[in-house]
């Protein structure tokens, strides 16, 4: 089954590469639509310079710091919202505002308040927080009522309730929300780096590639961002799965009413 999946994926990627090559051949100019070999060439050339890794590390540090801040604040805000309806309404207002404000507006506003090096961290955090908050709150609200009744009858301590009932209940939602949020963190973080022209960042390199019409390089940086973003997503998902399993699994028996 796994071999079938790998073969199918490789076959599909190959077909898309052929389509890409055909389109670039039809366009005929690398400056508008580079061929896969030109992009791979640019990527190899970039990867052979130490600056490439320094740029990635710089962006990685800023964006993932923002991701962690966004994740922690989303979780910490969801807990009081779950406990108290009035707090939920109170917290929901800024969360909805943050969710609705365009990234570009946020970046420009943030540029007035912060030094540009902290920009990608702030923007990533503001994009991640509402996703984690809403998923976490929803998962807490959907905690199996019958398990909570069990905890009440058996007089389980708050720590036991959190450990054995709430954490297994929220973990599946938290893992999927974190995976989605990682992608958003990278998209918004890179956008912030481009708008803020943050020196030594991937976003700045992307901007320079566009400015000097180095389209193969632009594509190569985009592929790099996708690879790093997916790697971060897999790593975070793996970490959360490990935490979930070490705490004793991820789901309760679904109770039924008679």
């Amino acid at each position: 089954m796994k071999a079938k999946k790998i073969i199918t994926t490789i076959a599909c990627i190959s077909i898309w590469l052929i389509i890409w090559y055909a389109v670039s051949s039809a366009v005929g100019k690398d400056i508008f639509f580079p061929a896969p070999n030109a992009v791979i060439g640019a990527l190899v050339s970039m990867a052979s310079t130490p600056g490439f890794y320094a740029d990635i590390l710089y962006s990685l540090r800023g964006i993932m710091t923002g991701f962690i801040i966004g994740m922690i604040s989303g979780i910490l805000l969801a807990i009081p919202s779950f406990c108290c309806y009035y707090l939920e309404v109170f917290i929901n207002i800024p969360v909805k505002v943050i969710r609705a404000v365009p990234v570009a507006s946020f970046v420009i506003l943030a540029l007035l308040w912060l030094k540009s090096s902290a920009l990608s961290t702030l923007i990533s955090a503001t994009m991640v927080m509402p996703i984690i908050y809403s998923q976490m709150l929803s998962a807490l609200k959907n905690t199996d009522r019958k398990m909570l009744e069990f905890a009440k009858v058996y007089r389980l301590s708050l720590i036991k309730r959190i450990r054995y009932i709430f954490i297994p209940s929220v973990m599946p939602s938290l893992v999927s929300a974190a995976a989605v949020a990682t992608g958003f963190a990278w998209k918004s973080g890179i956008a912030a780096e481009i708008i803020g022209l943050i020196r030594g960042s991937v976003g700045n390199e992307l901007y320079k590639a566009k400015l000097y019409l180095e389209t193969p390089k632009l594509f190569a940086w985009t592929i790099t961002i996708i690879i790093v973003s997916v790697a971060c997503e897999k790593l975070i998902t793996l970490l959360l799965h490990i935490i979930s399993n070490s705490l004793g699994g991820s789901s309760h028996e679904k109770s039924h009413n008679n």
Binding site: V153, P168, G249, H252, S255
Partner: peptide
Amino acid sequence: SAVFQEDRLCEGMSASRNIRI
């Protein structure tokens, strides 16, 4: 102590851990 109509166990945990809770 109660045996509920449904078992109300933590499915992802071992049998003994469910009791140790």
